[in-house]
């Protein structure tokens, strides 16, 4: 058994080494998925833990909207909800938003790339859970927030720090398992 054979052995054990490393990696991912710290389907947002970006938006038909200064000045936690009247999952989450607002949480809405008429029709049809409402017709604020698509919601603590984020509709499992614990942490 000379050196060439040893070298051959080492070379031929590379696939096993690679497969072992890969297997181990997937084992760790599975463990983390089981503990709920890894989910490839979620989108993390770099804003979590940071202050909201600067913005200033108007409401529907020239009514008062809101901006980052109001968010920062608020004494209560705020659920900031990006939505649109043309978005089907937004209509799907509307009843749950209603439940959240009735439980005493302020929801501020930003209508993303929407038209006033369609928006009024939407709010009349699916209900208006929003304490304050602003419109983002150009979508620039949404870009600054790093929004992937609508609906997307940010939980903002007093002082304007983003504490939690969800890309996708707020449905009961997410509300109960993620949003409520985060709200309790702030309170």
């Amino acid at each position: 058994m000379g050196h060439p054979l040893l070298r051959r052995r080492l070379l031929l054990s590379l696939p096993l080494a690679a497969a072992t490393a890969g297997g181990l990696g997937f084992y760790i991912l599975l463990e983390r998925a089981r503990q709920g710290t890894y989910n490839p389907q979620t989108f993390s947002n770099p804003l979590v833990g940071h202050r909201v970006p600067d913005f200033r938006l108007v409401g529907i038909d020239g009514k008062h909207g809101f901006g980052s200064s109001q968010l920062i000045a608020s004494k209560k936690p705020i659920l900031l909800n990006f939505f649109a009247s043309w978005c089907v999952p937004c209509a799907g989450e509307a009843p749950y938003l209603d439940v959240i607002s009735k439980s005493g949480v302020d929801i501020w809405g930003i209508a993303y790339q929407d038209k006033a008429k369609a928006l009024a029709f939407y709010l009349a049809k699916y209900g208006d859970p929003y304490t304050r409402l602003a419109t983002d017709p150009t979508g620039r604020t949404a870009i600054n927030f790093g929004v992937y698509g609508v609906p997307e919601s940010f939980l903002i603590a007093p002082g304007g720090i983003v504490r939690w984020h969800i890309a996708g509709p707020l449905v009961p499992p997410i509300i109960n398992e993620q949003l409520r614990p985060e709200l309790q942490k702030i309170a």
């Binding site: 997937f26 084992y27 991912l29 599975l30 463990e31 998925a33 089981r34 989910n39 490839p40 389907q41």
Partner: peptide, 18 residues
Amino acid sequence: SGLLNSVHSFAVSPNQGL
């Protein structure tokens, strides 16, 4: 197992996955 993100979404099922 749901570990790779795909448009064909499969729910993450860690027990079956293990």
